[in-house]
Design a protein around this nucleic acid. Structure first.
Lengths: 222, 222
DNA sequence: TAGATTGTTAATCGATTAACAATC
DNA sequence: TAGATTGTTAATCGATTAACAATC
């Protein structure tokens, strides 16, 4: 076949790798050295064949008859996901949600330190939050450059979302996590994911009304 | 065929209905009376054929040669999603994220009023947040009953997640939106969706490292 | 009638999963 | 060698999308 590039991990598999990673870190904490696809599947809440298939895209890191070495597999997944380096994030929009995200300590410890906080309100600019000064959106380019950030979190009101995201892209951010209740578009080459609390609740509402026979299967992440 | 029950909307379509709803409300604001599948698709960031297919599961609410009446379609989707009534939500875990969610005004106005706030820390119990008193987890049953809530938001630390979710299920909640960085399981008949900030960031990291030829397609919600 | 757009069919694509040979 | 478990194949299922007849 002589194809030059073999490696292409399906989107659905990529989305599950972080879940496996979390399960593996639990296993590390409880001093478990090896894990079978069946056990890992149980922890992750998925089918065992799916686990094996997902992991096979990374390479052959398991041992037949034994399972996967927890530490080694952890390392390989982290490598694949690019988690061997820190990825500073710039948070745009310091309303309720933006402030909560900035105060949430979990990011830094997971390899996503705050690279900068941004708002358009002059009253907020210059104030401190969780040890970070809030900068004006006009200084976004500089903040991105100085922090080396490539990931941006969009937490503005819906009205401002598209114009802020345009400026984020212009400032050089390559990945955007959109918390604004709005559909935004980005040029090719920029990754976009969306988290929308109201939409999640509305999806749950749908399955609320259903009768016993058609139950929703549990859905993860989204 | 004489099947008794025709209506079964695919999961992927259900998940897009709230997105269409949001686009339709924008159209209403700008006084647009009818919309074609092509325009709606553009607003929602999806394929037009997909819009027509999704909407066809609701019934034949469009007019050939014309499009869909915005107001009528809005009503039908809201009906299908069960958004004609309020769904009080109980928030369990009043840490950073739980507090932010409680303070976030967007829920009430969208039909998800706060039905109760819950924590296990005696120091927090009894204090007020956004006009709601924080109750102890031991009073969960009573809070659920009195508020009539069927949806719960889980915002505890990872360690407490499964035990709290068990109590939420026991208290009668039928849908749970899990913000805790942990995989939890629920019995059949209970819906579960998960929102995990760290996992979203890790998925973005994966696509960061990729070369130009294999770009991530934008992914919405999930 | 001519133009526009739906609703639906059918082809295609990607994801899931059971099954099992390979192999530790 | 016997038992366990991976890695992979192939069948199946569900979602996407192009195409077009129906029809406003």
């Amino acid at each position: 076949m002589a194809d030059k590039e073999e490696r292409r991990i399906p989107e659905a598999s990529v989305a599950r790798l972080p879940i496996y990673l979390r399960c593996l870190s639990e296993l590390t904490e409880t001093a478990v050295a090896t894990v079978s696809s069946v056990s890992l599947a149980e922890l992750a809440g998925v089918n065992a064949a799916k686990v094996r298939k997902d992991l096979s895209y990374l390479g052959s890191y398991g041992t037949r008859g034994v399972g996967y070495e927890v530490e080694y597999l952890t390392h390989q997944i982290r490598l694949e996901l690019g988690l061997t380096q820190d990825w500073p994030v710039v948070v745009c929009g310091m309303g309720n949600l933006g402030q909560a995200l900035a105060n949430y300590g979990g990011f830094g410890s997971r390899g996503y330190p705050i690279g900068g906080l941004i708002d358009a309100d002059p009253a907020k600019v210059g104030t401190e939050l969780h040890g970070h000064t809030i900068h004006h959106i006009d200084d976004l380019d500089r903040v991105v450059e100085e922090s080396g950030a490539t990931i941006g979190i969009l937490a503005t009101p819906a009205e401002a979302a598209q114009s802020v995201v345009d400026r984020m892209v212009e400032a050089g951010l390559k990945s955007i996590l959109n918390f604004a209740p709005s559909i935004v578009s980005v040029p090719e080459g920029v990754s976009l994911r969306k988290v929308d609390l109201a939409i999640e609740l509305q999806i749950l509402s749908f399955y609320q009304g259903r009768s016993e026979q058609d139950l929703t299967p549990p859905i993860v992440s989204r």
